[in-house]
Design a protein around this nucleic acid. Structure first.
Lengths: 360, 360
DNA sequence: GTGAAAGCGCTAACAC
DNA sequence: GTGTTAGCGCTTTCAC
């Protein structure tokens, strides 16, 4: 028990050869039932555990999948996505004995590219998850093909998809938010956007813009954010400097929405009476800020699970279908109300809104 | 370039043996300068990258370190600690070509123990980081010794330390918070604690209690939280039900503080006029809530870096010194002020704000 | 200085 | 059915 027992130890104890043991352990046919039983018994007896390292060398596989998180360090702690996503990924990987290896790069593209190059070159992983897809030609797509590293993208890129994707319909939830605000009487509905170079930032903005258009509302004012609280606060301040400030703001994530609401408070505005706001993500905190945040729920855990399953399949089979997740839904809380001039007495009687209510 | 070139390819090109190439690549002495140069040139030319898998098998080392995150899945996204900690760890590991492998366990102790067992048994990692240390005998300590898996703990356990630790002085920051509140005139300073079975939860509470005692103030009321927003809100409500509610609350983390402030708002209390609150962590959001949160800053990134360096050293040398991080500091913002002259106003008619916890 | 060969623990042809 | 043998790609002892 000082050294972990090997396949050879098991073979010696049973009195068979290594290959027989290997066959049994891998459930291969062609082993006498009796022998099989004795091998299994001996393996259990010795506490045999196959060496992952030896298997990896033999199979030329890492039995591990990789995730490169490229984020400025400040944002990492605030972003609710990765932890939940990772948890989802891991639950699937653990089932099949794969590991998740993580790289964090805080610098620019070069450092990020190096991250993938090392993961691939070292043979540390058999495939990677591609989050934060960039609009247009994401340079990582080409890089990964060059590296021959299988991947699954979060969201399908606009360009020809080289890899299977996990798709989350963000549009439906945002549209529901805009429709909800319009139904309350808002006509000047702004957007604080995420970075437009990212697919998710871009799509959320497009969903807002399209919803306004479809409702026959004028294009609302907008301000660029960066998904950070500081960026959301700054963007909100810019919106307030408009000649005609909005009566409602649709934020591209909860963090910016919460920071934006704070800016409003500090201007002496009351939410939702003077300004309605909506978020995106439905972070745990969303229901615990004042007022509780109306937001679009997205299931990062499910996304992680789906991504892991898809990537595992791709790695095993050489191909995999893209996965579709259920559409995002609007969660009504108390940060939205009719606009101030209308002055309707707020009919907010039933607010036990723990269940998402899709308005579509 | 179809197959990654091996040490044998390099040897053949140069016209030397594999072992010579190996010697050169590992900077071993005893190779003619000329030969060495030719080997290096050929390796560069071929784009040779040593196979991590083969090295791992030869050295019987994984060149990877592990982190098991044990958290209910729903809460993972809300916790600001892990992402920042991981970023810190990774910056150090990347430098020396090690990988970080992650396990997420959402179940109970059995699942967690299995996580460590698998990581060790598979030889996936050479050591692990132990976060969320439990007070008293943390069962993982014994488990890891049994598994012969090197570890570094975040905070030194109360019991005989079997592993080096990375120590963060949380006490100083909390004490500063209590002293700050006392200096403002508060005499009834409450605490919303983290789980007392965890070292960090326990120490933060102790720091608060000790500070009160040292200032000659009466022991304040307290309520148990669980580091989640929901738990912080519930604990805060319990404090308000005291016969003599506190005029200030020291929270064991920002998340609970923000949720607690929301509860206060909903009772019609104004922060900081009617109630002062302080947090712990200094998350990005802390400065972007209303009012900006006075809190204790802790540097999870630095903790990750220190932990990685310590664990690497332990794995290399077989022993390592514990590391001490700079003491936490109080960050003054606007959630603290002198107590209201008349004491705490009677809470407004309390609304039915016991939102059931979402389970998804 | 350099090469041959054994070994890390497993898989997989190919004989018997 | 089972054993023998040759890899997977690297390190390392030991001759030369």
């Amino acid at each position: 028990m000082r050294q972990s027992p090997t396949i050879a130890d098991v073979a010696r104890v049973v009195g068979v050869s290594k290959s027989t043991v290997s066959f049994v352990l891998n459930n291969r046919p062609g082993v006498a039932a009796d022998t099989r039983a004795r091998v299994l018994a001996a393996a259990a007896e010795l506490g045999f555990r196959p060496s992952h390292r030896a298997r990896a060398l033999s199979y030329s596989r890492a039995f591990a999948l990789g995730l490169v998180m490229a984020r400025p360090a400040e944002l990492l702690g605030a972003d609710p996505f990765f932890p939940a996503f990772i948890a989802g990924v891991e639950t699937e990987l653990a089932k099949v004995g794969h590991a998740l290896v993580l790289r964090v790069v805080t610098g620019g593209w070069d450092e990020e590219a190096d991250g993938y190059r090392q993961l691939a070159g070292d043979g540390r992983v058999d495939g990677v998850f591609l989050s934060d897809l960039r609009v247009g030609d994401d340079p990582r797509l080409e890089l990964l093909q060059e590296l021959r590293l299988p991947a699954v993208t979060l969201q399908t890129p606009d360009t020809s998809p080289a890899f299977p994707a996990v798709n989350l319909d963000e549009r439906t939830g945002i549209r529901a938010a805009v429709e909800h605000l319009a139904a309350l009487g808002h006509r000047r509905i702004a957007h604080v956007a995420g970075p437009q170079e990212f697919v998710h930032g871009h799509r959320r903005r497009a969903a807002w813009a399209d919803a306004l258009r479809d409702l026959g509302l004028p294009p609302g004012p907008e301000a660029a954010g960066d998904f950070t609280a500081a960026g959301g606060a700054a963007a909100t301040r810019r919106l307030f400097e408009e000649s005609e400030p909005p009566s409602a703001i649709v934020y591209a994530n909860d963090l910016m929405a919460i920071a934006g609401a704070t800016v409003a408070h500090e201007r002496g505005l009351s939410i939702p009476d003077d300004l309605s706001v909506t978020g995106f993500d439905d972070t745990e905190l969303a229901r615990h800020v004042h007022p509780p945040l109306t937001t679009v729920r997205m299931d990062a855990l499910a996304m992680g699970r789906a991504a892991a399953r898809t990537l595992l399949q791709l790695v095993e089979n050489g191909s995999a279908e893209s996965a579709e997740l259920p559409p995002t839904e609007l969660v009504l809380r108390r940060s939205t109300a009719p606009p101030a001039p209308g002055g309707l007495p707020r009919p907010r009687a039933s607010q036990a809104d723990d269940e998402p209510r899709s308005t579509s």
